[in-house]
Amino acid sequence: MAATALPTLTAKDLTTDQEVRWCPGCGDYSILAQMKKALTTVGVPREKMVFVSGIGCSSRFPYYMNTYGFHTIHGRAPTVATGLRLANPDLQIWVVTGDGDGLSIGGNHLMHVLRRNIDLKILLFNNEIYGLTKGQYSPTSRTGTPSKTSKTGSLETPIRPLTMAIASEATFIARTVDVDVKHLTETLQKAAAHKGAAFVEIYQNCKIFNDEVWAYATDKSVKADNLLYVEHGKPMIFGKDKNKGIRLNGLTPEVVEIGKDCQIDDLLVHDEKTDDPTLATLLSRMVGPKFPEVLGTYRSFRKPCYEEMLDAQIADNIAKKGKGQVADLFKAEDVWTVE
């Protein structure tokens, strides 16, 4: 008899009976739909998928995925996901967080979970606002952003999530945008395939409190001039007419016009595999309107995960001295017998 083929997963299989309660027009709907689509192709059965989230609009995500899920507390999803990973090596674990949850209250955990290279796929829905609490500025809000708690304009310099992820030594780093469904799906699939800490920033529109903050990256009429999609091994070309590129001038990137300022060979070529973070760092700091903002995979390289190394230590010590028995626990420097 032929081997039974793995049952094919459909988006419907991944849908729960819970009513989705995001606001109409929220970017989260698209991310949810693309996530389901992406997961039908990754070859992992649904019972081996877990969604872990913190608090915020994005963190409702687990309730809508018919997989295992844990809606934890504000900012702490990376910690719970880490424990889950230590307990169970063969799950595919997704962490869903937002700019407030992941970068403000949970900033510390994000940094450390990336540095430890725990095998988790971390999605940061960045809408540059606190949505669930109804419209306060967030750590990614641009300086000057008016909000409920910054009526006169935010005074703070925003965090660049990808620069932070690079500094934290994440082994997979990418950026995509909620409405580019094809790129979003591909990015999620790539993150799913990565072994190690994967960090994906998703530009996500908050229809109610920060509408159109990403318009320059989503509006069809302008986005081609405002975004640069990078691909491994390819020169960095963008623009409606594919005639603009990025060239390095000393240590500074600059926008150039191909054929006028330079030739294609002069452009920066993307390398997501290098273990040198310099290029990724340069890309992560390119912001509009001076630069196109960079979408795609910034970094993707393999490094041992914390849990792999821990398992190796366990195996190593067992190999050396045998599996620990209860009696071994009671051994001590000095044991004496009373008769």
């Binding site: 872990v52 934890t72 702490r76 719970v80 996901a81 424990g83 889950l84 307990a87």
Partner: peptide
């Protein structure tokens, strides 16, 4: 958080 995740 790690301990609770492990329990889960």
């Amino acid at each position: 958080g790690v301990a609770l995740g492990a329990s889960f």
